[in-house]
Design a binder for these strands. Structure first.
Length: 808
RNA sequence: GCCGAGGUGGCGGAACUGGCAGACGCACGGGACUCAAAAUCCCGCGAUAGCAAUAUCAUAAGGGUUCAACUCCCUUCCUCGGCACCA
């Protein structure tokens, strides 16, 4: 018996599949389209991470299963090669990003061929190629024209040592990812996408899309909607008022001071009236210089300064209250000012204690507010017309009162900010805008797209705060599209999330050169039937993709407004209880294992580890066990083929195989890959036993085995299908039907309990009646011992499962 | 701190809607084959007591509901992931 030669067999089918176009579907004609999408990888190293492979083989197994179930599965792949991850990798290895990209593309695609996924290789998408980013720029222009792209000041992360702007993901605990210096905030002009304009729709659709609650909650929390009231406090003896937002209007009587964020306008506007201007300036300066690290460190120890000479007036009782500046109030949320209710807010309480401000209880909750803040709901006290009302009622009542007196109104606030898409970096699509001294900002005409990313040797960020493209005069200098005069190009590139927020719209339309996507094509293929990806993208990437799809829908390009019918988040692959990373020294190179054990073994091993939802723990020793199984399975099939008739007659064999069809099918539908594999293993073991017992197994069993293992181990499945005498690919076949008669046993083992404890098991015919089962149970010798002297209180019968005799 | 997911043998993990805890695999022990080894095959494998049949205990800890709890409820602890002064 020959051993399973994975290298030879995998190479053979790889070639044949490619030649025969087995993985392609006719995008216009197929009757049952199924768009099976996986998150395309970003090349931040030479090759695929085993974590990518982990995600992809599960996704592919599901896609292949759907294909066998009769769907026309479109399964594309590409590379998210633009962006900071790739650029940083190039910088680290001191090579030009262009060369690195070409090399990684080749290696990634080779590896993706190796793992045996049914990708349509004629439709890859690489975000860094002009024929793709042309349309990323087009997308920007549509956003601009719709008024959804605008320019505004924003604070960015700045590393004083590297003299560069950093993205949020490059700032780790307030320190620069590369040099570990503490980062600062800087104000810079940036381009934004107005995602906040779509916030209610993004929230509302979550009610009906078929995603797990976990992912929906993640998005909901990120959007962070809170309802309450907005109202203004006047400043005594002065004109302007201070606008605030609160979720607890019921506590207004307990507002004993106000706090402004350091950036608040009022400070500049009322300079003349402030008595301690110098001290305040000092505080503002310090606050500005504070690194993120210090700011979070001071989380518990709040700092601030009173504005002397000014008092705020609480509109509800006209009491004058002190006014503070403190950096625990953020300029980026709400109005940048708060009413502080120390008795019922922990932060305000901390601050009040430190600065000796009055703490006034207005909600009864059974705690002494002088000792700790009581933040839950309760019954209003010391609040005049609110006294005795529950928090919810009291809030509603207060809002009514504010509205009646024109002091405030019901209001909603979100944590979600507009999406800053500017990056002062090289490796991305240049933002297609031109600034003319006369005409202002002008979009690049669509006919002039793409704005090509120019070659440059030194693409490293410099200290100017502007993108590297700013150094190329020929790039920067341009004619104004409006007046033809001299103008300057935007030198920022866009956020890599812009590249990835629409790639799934491009896959089915890669052959169109005059439009990013074809409406009719997308009507057939959207929404994506199954999107499998990592948990780390359940917030930003998914939210951006939904947002952009909605905009494209509104512009009439796309019929659907939700892009992903179903999203499934897989867990993290770890090793030795920790994340796989270079710094931990637990890197797993997938190539090595594919070479040694074959793609099928690697696939099966990764899928057998654990429930994919929860992630898996890679251990080298397990790999050889799976290799053993692959050989065992192959050997069994070969032996059957060698010495058998065509058709299986033996009932036991049929029972075993048909049960396996059912179990594997059910598990794959539920994405329970690990137990599907266990089911195949059990089936294999049983067939070996049966064979050893001398019973005949027909070659039709091999056909069934090939089909049910096909989604998981495609190479071996195809090989066996071929050896069973078929010319056409196993992936053009239908998933086998199981015969219900074989799946249901005629006789079952009935569990007999006494007082809930297992005491005996008896064989009974299926669907036995309660009376008969109880009778048999009581007759059991073992059971008699337990109930002999006792009275039977009642008997519980669970059909086809158990009889429980309860005694007194 | 908040949100989410988890905690089951030596290890990775199974367990449908509350109904036989430990499927499947790894590691380990014993045996067969072999001059020997590898490979392969067979048997055993939660703990305690017992020659055994069997009994008792056991799903992070403690309590509760139930005829019956890994599964539901309450309290506490731990691990992982995300967010982090969100008014």
């Amino acid at each position: 018996m020959e051993k399973y030669d994975h290298k030879k067999i995998e190479a053979k089918w790889q070639k044949i599949w490619q030649e025969q176009g087995v993985n392609q579907v006719d995008l216009d004609k197929v009757p049952k389209p199924f768009y099976n999408l996986m998150m395309f990888p970003y090349p931040s190293a030479e090759g695929l991470h085993v974590g990518n492979v982990y995600a992809f083989v599960h996704s592919d197994a599901y896609g292949r299963f759907q294909r066998l179930k009769g769907f026309d599965v479109f399964e594309p792949i590409g590379l998210d090669g633009f962006g900071i991850h790739s650029e940083n990798y190039a910088i680290r290895i001191k090579e030009h990003i262009k060369n690195v990209s070409a090399r990684t593309e080749k290696h990634f695609y080779e590896q993706l061929h190796m793992i045996g996924n049914q990708y349509d290789w004629n439709r890859t998408v690489e975000t860094y190629k002009p024929d793709y980013y042309k349309w990323t720029q087009w997308l920007f222009l549509q956003m601009y024209k719709k008024g959804l792209a605008y320019r505004d000041k924003a604070s960015v992360n700045w590393c004083p040592s590297c003299k560069t702007v950093l993205s949020d993901e490059q700032v780790i605990n307030g320190r620069c990812e590369r040099c570990s210096s503490e980062t600062e905030k800087r104000q810079m002009k940036q381009w934004f996408f107005k995602i906040t304009a779509y916030v209610e729709r993004l929230l509302k659709n979550l009610e009906w899309i078929n995603w797990s609650a976990e992912v929906k909650i993640g998005q909901k929390n990120w959007i962070g909607k809170s309802e309450g009231a907005s109202l203004s406090f006047s400043v005594a003896d002065s004109q302007p008022t201070i606008e605030i937002f609160t979720t607890r209007p019921d506590t207004l009587f307990g507002a004993t001071f106000m706090v402004l964020c350091p950036e608040h306008q009022l400070i500049k506007n009322l300079k003349d009236k402030i008595e301690n201007l110098k001290e305040i300036d000092d505080y503002l300066k310090k606050a500005q210089q504070k690194s993120d690290l210090e700011r979070t460190d001071l989380n518990k120890n709040k700092t601030g300064i009173e504005i002397k000479g000014l008092k705020a007036v609480n509109p509800v009782n006209n009491k004058k209250i002190p006014l503070f500046i403190a950096d625990y109030v953020l300029s980026s949320y709400g109005t940048g000012a708060i009413m502080a209710v120390p008795a019922h807010d922990q932060r305000d309480w901390d601050f009040a204690k430190k600065y000796g401000i009055e703490i006034k209880e207005v909600v009864k909750g059974g705690k002494n507010v002088q000792e700790e803040a009581y933040i839950d709901s309760g019954v209003s006290v010391n609040s005049e017309f609110l006294d005795g009302l529950e928090t919810k009622e009291a809030s509603a009542r207060m809002i009514k009162w504010l509205e009646k007196n024109h002091l405030g109104k019901r209001a909603v606030n979100y944590k979600l900010r507009d999406w800053c898409v500017s990056r002062q970096r090289y490796w991305g699509p240049p933002i297609p805008m031109i600034e003319c001294a006369k005409c202002g900002w002008q979009p690049v005409p669509e006919k002039d797209l793409p704005v090509l990313l120019p070659d440059m040797d030194n693409f490293l960020p410099d200290g100017t705060g502007k993108g590297p493209l700013n150094k190329i005069k020929e790039f920067v200098n341009a004619d104004c599209p409006q007046c033809g005069g001299k103008a300057k190009r935007e030198t920022d590139v866009s956020d890599p999330f812009v590249d990835s927020c629409w790639y799934f719209l491009r896959y089915p339309c890669t052959e169109f050169t005059d439009q990013p996507f074809d409406k009719k094509r997308l009507e057939k293929w959207l929404p994506v039937n199954m999107y499998i990806g990592g948990k780390e993208h359940t917030v930003l990437h998914l939210l951006y993709s939904r947002f952009i799809t909605m905009v494209m829908h509104d512009l009439g390009y796309v019929k659907e407004e939700e892009p992903f019918k179903r999203f499934f988040a897989h867990g993290l692959l770890i090793k030795d209880k920790s994340k796989i990373s270079k710094s931990k020294g637990n890197i797993v190179n997938p190539d090595e294992y594919i070479d040694k054990f074959g793609a099928d073994s690697v696939r099966l091993y990764l899928m057998f580890l654990n429930d994919v939802r929860l992630g898996g723990d890679w251990r080298d020793s397990g790999m050889s066990g799976m290799f053993k199984f692959v050989n065992r399975f192959y050997k069994l099939a070969e032996e059957i083929l060698k010495n058998s008739d065509k058709k299986t007659e033996n009932q036991d064999v049929l029972k075993i195989t048909h049960k396996a069809i059912k179990r594997v099918g059910d598990d794959l539908e539920k994405l329970k890959f690990n137990t599907a594999i266990a089911a195949i293993m059990e089936c294999t073991n049983s067939l070996y036993e049966i064979e050893a017992a001398g019973k005949k197994i027909g070659s039709d069993v091999v056909e069934i085995l090939a089909k049910i293992i096909a989604p998981l181990a495609p190479f071996m499945a195809e090989e066996l299908w071929n050896q069973a005498g078929h010319k056409e690919s196993v992936f053009k076949q239908k998933w086998p039907e199981y015969n219900p008669e074989f799946v249901q046993d005629k006789e079952i083992e009935l569990v007999i309990q006494v007082c809930g404890k297992l005491r005996d098991k008896i064989k009974v015919p299926i669907n036995i009646s309660e009376e008969k089962a109880s009778e048999l149970a009581k007759q059991s010798v073992k059971i008699k011992n337990y109930i002999s002297e006792k009275k039977i209180k009642k008997i519980i019968f669970v059909k086809n499962r158990l009889v429980n005799i309860v005694t007194s």
